[in-house]
Design a protein around this nucleic acid. Structure first.
Lengths: 137, 137
DNA sequence: CCTTATAGCTTGCATAATGCAAGTAACTAG
DNA sequence: CTAGTTACTTGCATTATGCAAGCTATAAGG
């Protein structure tokens, strides 16, 4: 009970948070899930274009960390709908802090809120998923 | 004017913030500077023990990003006292969001506020800097 | 039946970041 | 003159990231 040394670096809340989401991609996945996305394809289709191997690995890590859950919405082949747990949704405050900081201190950045929102006129709302080689025509 | 493509991944404020501080160490350096530390040795002495090559590289990157400034407090050999710019201080809100999230969702974590604070009874408040080989006595 | 297409991953590397250990420069104390 | 200290730099091994391609299961078109 007293020999527990469960912290990789220190007991600091910031350090341990960074050990979970302290990389360039994890919080973007959380952002997309907060914005209503849920499938692998939707997450892969975000403007930053996360490499698919990294997306798969992050989904595993975030699920192991209790930040997301994957619920099968289809079997043969099994497909998962990913959703945030309460722990994951709570990261919204961190996202919000980043948005505020970025908008104030990185010129040109903006909030990317691509939810369906109004009546279906949102840009790319009905666009097909971008394939590896977008063969036009 | 319209051909500008200054964003590495997207115009999203979160993505661009993560391109600057989206790693395991940068925000810890900011945390320590917010806590009143300023010299290289003080930063290297934090409980997480950042490798010195990474600390040197992060100080360069954070200065290039306008988050910290290095002011020489001594020449022959020139030594720098690092301090946060307003842009860097504004990251305090992000740190705070991480602290709140970590404390609520990662059991056992705590706020590491190692400022002198009260009357000198803070743990390790007067401890000497840990050398590479901490030779006790 | 056979080719295309699509969703959702996995695999194979090449490159970049991280981390440990040691080395170096310019001092200060003894 | 030797040892210690601060503030870094350098070398190299390990790990993470990123691009491209492959693979499986299903469906649609001809």
């Amino acid at each position: 009970m007293s020999t527990a040394k469960p912290f990789a670096r220190s007991a600091c809340a910031v350090a341990n948070s960074l050990d979970i989401v302290g990389d360039k991609w994890s919080l973007l996945v959380v952002r997309d899930l907060l914005h209503g996305k849920s499938t692998y394809g939707e997450l892969a289709d975000s403007p930053e274009h996360i490499p698919t191997n990294i997306l798969a690995e992050r989904l595993r890590r975030l699920e192991a960390a209790g930040i997301i859950t994957g619920t099968p919405y289809q079997k043969r082949p099994v497909r998962y709908a990913y959703a945030l747990t309460p722990k994951g949704k709570a990261l919204g405050d961190v996202l919000l802090a980043f948005v505020r900081w970025g908008r104030q201190h990185i010129p040109g950045t903006m909030v990317m809120d691509q939810r369906p929102a109004n009546g279906g006129s949102a840009a790319k709302a009905t666009a097909t998923r971008r394939t590896r080689k977008a063969r036009a025509k």
